[in-house]
Write a protein that binds this DNA or RNA. Structure first.
Length: 263
DNA sequence: TTCCATGTTCCGCA
DNA sequence: TTGCGGAACATGGA
């Protein structure tokens, strides 16, 4: 689930449930999920703190702990949050459990343990240290900047879109959708595109991410989107041609061979 | 049982 | 130097 739009949804969820409540207890239920700092450090920063706000950047979510720095959340392929009040049992796959003074809880879930929890003194510094580029929906990523970066890049479009050091937020699913809406084949190279095609790619990226982010990542209602028609035997929502898949940069990408020509 | 999966990272190779 | 394929990580579900 968690690409940029999903993390926007996660931010909304955290903001609407968990802010300004004193953290009375934190439990890491599997140490392996904490990366880049010690479990003790994470406990120390969280205990007694309040989350006063959040910042979403690409696939990252940062929770402001005020004087205690920031809690860094990354969701990997199967991460999510669950807030619940009272004395319910924590959901399955809870890797971190935060208890609030009022008795409510915030659980960080990760089925496959591919997510990451950490602490940071400053989000931007953390992003820089981890070689994460600007958020793909931020004002920083203008058409001109996008076109410039892409035309300097060699190799296929799809891995370029998924490269978090260029622009952060797109993963396998959304890169498929962006290429579909731009009418471009995933194996095309940026260097083969003219400016108007790159502009179209940029517009598709922004449109797709914006629409999906508004839904908090729940794009199941977008029947015309390719990603709701990924899979063997499925057909293109635009022209009815059977969709195809290719392996590219270690991932399986889906596309319409009619709408997304190589030339 | 085998393969695949919305993520990242590391290695070897071209 | 850059980008890619493949493996690794870890685990569940089809």
């Amino acid at each position: 689930m968690p690409e940029l739009p999903d993390v926007v949804g996660m931010k909304r969820y955290l903001d609407s449930t968990s802010l300004h409540q004193k953290i009375t207890h934190t439990q890491i239920r599997d140490d392996r999920i904490v990366k880049g700092c010690s479990v003790q450090m994470l406990y120390r920063r969280l205990h007694g703190a309040k989350m006063t706000g959040t910042v979403q950047h690409g696939k990252f979510l940062f929770a402001d702990l005020s004087a205690d720095g920031w809690l860094v959340l990354h969701f990997g392929m199967t991460g999510s949050l669950a807030y619940y009040s009272r004395d319910e049992k924590p959901p399955e796959y809870t890797r971190m459990l935060i208890d609030f003074a009022g008795g409510a809880h915030l659980a960080y879930l990760s089925k496959r343990m591919l997510g990451r929890l950490s602490v940071a003194d400053d989000p931007q510094k953390y992003l820089d240290d981890n070689d994460v580029g600007p958020d793909a929906l931020s004002d920083e990523v203008t058409a001109d900047r996008f076109i410039e970066a892409m035309s300097e890049r060699r190799g296929a479009l799809k891995p370029a879109l998924m490269d978090q050091s260029l622009f952060s937020g797109l993963g396998n699913i959304y890169s498929d959708e962006v290429l579909f809406q731009a009418g471009l084949h995933p194996r095309l190279e940026a260097a083969d595109l003219d400016t108007s095609q790159l502009r179209k790619l940029y517009k598709a990226m922004r449109t797709v991410l914006k629409a999906a982010a508004e839904e908090g990542g729940d794009i199941s209602g977008f029947g015309q989107w390719l990603v709701n028609h990924r899979g063997k035997g499925k057909t293109c929502p635009r022209c009815g041609t059977e969709v195809k898949s290719i392996s590219i940069a270690g991932r399986r990408g889906w596309f319409c061979p009619e709408c997304q020509r190589k030339s």
